[in-house]
Design a protein around this nucleic acid. Structure first.
Lengths: 334, 334
DNA sequence: CTGTTAGCGCGTTCAA
DNA sequence: TTGAACGCGCTAACAG
């Protein structure tokens, strides 16, 4: 394997033109069986594999799709990514991963990717609110599928009804007889999308329906997703004599943190403090966490499948956003 | 933005040749300040961004690095990936993700990636034993860094001493006074690398040092990584009257499964059954799992940094494999 | 059915 | 310091 073989070498070795080799490689239509075999033999013996950069340049396709997310470190992202990867594995597309920390950075990323023609399509997770409309203006036809974006959506999009989810979680607590409900979340999520705000709305709705007060001193809204901040706040709230008897955490991860703080304070869960999660990530099973399941893995699959269809030229259904079902998962923490 | 601008458009708009534009773009050496400005203005006004495929073809670089792993679904992979991504973010390289299910598939993947020149470098996780030597033969100079590979290693490589780790875990149990030790693992890991076998060796060594019997009926070695199989086996073992009083699980995930089975059987952890993990993934904190920490995040960072150096032309140190430190993390399950 | 040719957009000579 | 020409390896369109 001195210097890697090119299509020219194959053509020479097979005694044909490079056009024929190319044809054999891509579909192989209109090629006599015999020459096709000669070409294949040459390919084998030269151990030839087409150079991707060249193929990309001349075909104008990158054969890769990009994933952009602000939540690289969250387990919920990993589970989505698994669904994406699994679906993409069977296609010819490469999976390229991009993270972003701020809304600005997110936007620059996406614009670069499209303009530099680095990818054929994008799966965008938690797109910043403003970006969505701008994208529709600037790249109305670029293949994009979104996950978890607030209204209005201009692209194919899969999401859950977070207002409903927040309501379901709260309702479950109320049904069990808890009346002093607290709410914990990192509103960081609202920089990208609005899920935390929606879940909170569901929480408020349920409280209101039951004529219960919404005590803001039982809330904890963190500007970012940072465990130690959450821990500190939880510690303060749960140490108070006038503490809530149940907490709705806007994500399982947050719920875990609260449970650990409760343990430190010798509070039994759920006898002294009920904790309700949201997401149903894998660790929720181990922790026996009662939670609201949103189909993370499946949403990744669906988004990917949809994008692949779009890339295949199949026009997306016009019924987006598509809402995925939520499910109450009863375990041991409420 | 009718049709995306090319370098030619920029050249024309700036009244220069394309060579000059190219020079301004890459480094910008030997360009008069005034013309450089003219070019920049043209770039701005045309909203020009260089086409990646073309750049790749003509420069012969892909500006992307590939990650290959058989363990896409494991949390330990996610944590490594975070380290990789974080380090790569500051570079100009794209992160392309590839999974593989069998050793054969793994090998084909890697060979394709290299021969198709899809990536400039590779980070290989848990390379199948045989592949490592073959790669050295077939692509002795291709930039590759490995994580968790068994000896002998022919490439820069970061790993932990799993024999030591297994010994540390077992030693901790023995020190606490447990004498009836069981061992749980999925030997799937040994299809790729040999970490499970090494950890087991450490377990055996420690037992031997203390003159304790190594009861194979207290072992559970699964051929694959599947929770429900593990659960079944654990259930059988822990239901027996002659059951172990402590279990060393070869990964935190497995430990969680065992803890859950113990709960189902009304066994208290650690009073009735001690459980020792391995890895210290994030969920181990929430679960209060006593475990052996291996630096997952950091190993991803180190591997990436090393690869970037190699790609920069800096020759890798000759001291590989590099062993990362293990740490005993005392929590509540033993 | 098949060989030839013209780009794809950019990096990189090499003169000027 | 700069412009023009060549080539990267392949796809696609066009003759034959």
């Amino acid at each position: 394997m001195r210097t890697k073989a090119t299509i020219k070498d194959v053509a020479k070795a097979a005694g044909v033109g490079i056009g024929t080799v190319s044809r054999v490689l891509n579909g192989g239509l209109h090629v006599k069986e015999e020459t096709r075999l000669r070409v294949f033999t040459a390919i084998e013996s030269l151990d030839y594999q087409p150079n991707q950069a060249a193929r990309r340049l001349s075909s104008g396709k990158t054969y890769s799709i990009g994933i952009v997310t602000p939540f690289f470190t969250r387990p919920s992202f990993s589970e989505r990514l698994q669904g994406i990867e699994q679906t993409l594995r069977e296609s010819n597309y490469d999976l390229v991963l991009y993270s972003s920390t701020t809304a600005n950075h997110y936007q620059n990323r996406v614009y670069s990717l499209i303009k530099e023609q680095r990818v054929d399509g994008l799966i965008l997770l938690n797109v910043p609110q403003t970006l969505c409309a701008q994208l529709k203006d600037d790249f109305p036809t670029f293949p994009i599928v979104m996950l978890d974006v607030a209204f209005p959506t201009y692209f194919p999009c899969f999401m859950v009804d977070d207002v409903l989810g927040g309501w379901m979680a709260t309702q479950a607590l109320l049904k069990k007889g808890y009346t002093r409900l607290g709410y914990f979340c990192d509103s960081y999520a609202d920089v990208f999308g609005r899920s935390a705000a929606f879940r909170y709305q569901g929480f408020v709705n349920a409280l209101h329906e039951h004529g219960l007060p919404n005590r803001s001193d039982w809330h904890c809204l963190l500007p970012r997703f940072e465990t130690h901040l959450l821990e500190k706040q939880a510690h303060a709230l749960l140490s108070s004599p006038d503490r809530p008897d149940a907490i709705f955490a806007s994500s399982d991860i947050n719920a875990f943190t609260i449970i650990n703080v409760a343990r430190q304070l010798q509070l039994r869960v759920p006898q002294d403090l009920a904790v309700m999660g949201y997401d149903d990530i894998e660790a929720a099973t181990y922790m026996n966490l009662t939670t609201i399941r949103q189909p993370l893995h499946q949403s990744g699959q669906l988004a990917t499948r949809t994008l692949l269809h779009v890339l295949d030229g199949v026009p997306p259904e016009s019924t987006f956003p598509h809402f995925l079902p939520l499910e109450y998962i009863a375990r041991q923490t409420i």
